[in-house]
């Protein structure tokens, strides 16, 4: 069956939200079981005492990327039917910087804060409330951000098109870089004093 199954009409559209709940459960379970419900475990990546975020995040990105590329080569999935987030260079960078500061202060990102709320972390609940307030602030002051929000639009661009290399070569280089990072991270973990949390 050639995917994506719901957009291709193999599975009826009515099942979309059922899959949303089931796939979300897999997402939430894996994040929590990997330790993403603890802000002090998450933030360990930046101080070198626990690299779980780096390891899980890049392993997941590479697994999904290789899987989808493989499925696309074998004709199991129609790559052009997958949703590619469009690129707005300026807002992606500025938004990412604002999120990065928020990350270092709050210790969570939205997905991990939901997981931490689910197991009873009150700091995550407060983070989530803050997030809703932040979205309200952004929306109400949208005219201030509107120009930047829409600027430097490149469409649904692939990183391989802007680098001018093939998907296979890019995947190989990314895996190579990730393995190097994992090796470096493990080395640093052994050097850095353990933090109890």
């Amino acid at each position: 069956m050639v995917g994506p199954l719901i957009p291709m009409g193999v599975i009826p559209q009515a099942w979309d939200n059922v899959f949303a709940v089931l796939l979300g459960m897999g997402f939430g379970f894996t994040l929590e079981a990997s330790g993403f419900s603890s802000s002090r475990k998450i933030i360990g990546t930046f101080f070198g005492y626990d690299f779980v975020v780096l390891k899980v995040f890049f392993t997941a990105a590479i697994t999904a990327m290789l899987g989808l590329l493989y499925m696309s080569y074998t004709g199991l999935v129609e790559f052009s039917m997958l949703y590619i987030q469009p690129t707005y260079v300026t807002s992606a960078i500025v938004g990412g910087i604002v999120m990065g500061i928020g990350f270092s202060m709050g210790g969570y990102c939205p997905g991990t804060s939901f997981c931490a709320v689910a197991i009873g972390k009150l700091d995550a609940l407060v983070f989530t409330i803050g997030m809703l307030v932040g979205i309200l602030i952004f929306s109400e002051s949208f005219p201030v951000f509107e120009k930047m929000y829409n600027s430097s639009f490149l469409g649904p661009k692939l990183v391989t098109d802007s680098l001018g290399i093939s998907k296979g070569l890019f995947a190989f280089l990314l895996v190579f870089a990730a393995v190097g990072m994992f090796w470096g991270a493990t080395w640093v973990e052994h050097k850095v004093k353990k933090v109890e949390y």
Partner: peptide
């Protein structure tokens, strides 16, 4: 941190 993450996202 939540407020900033909300705006940035």
């Amino acid at each position: 941190g939540g407020i900033l993450f909300g705006i940035g996202s």
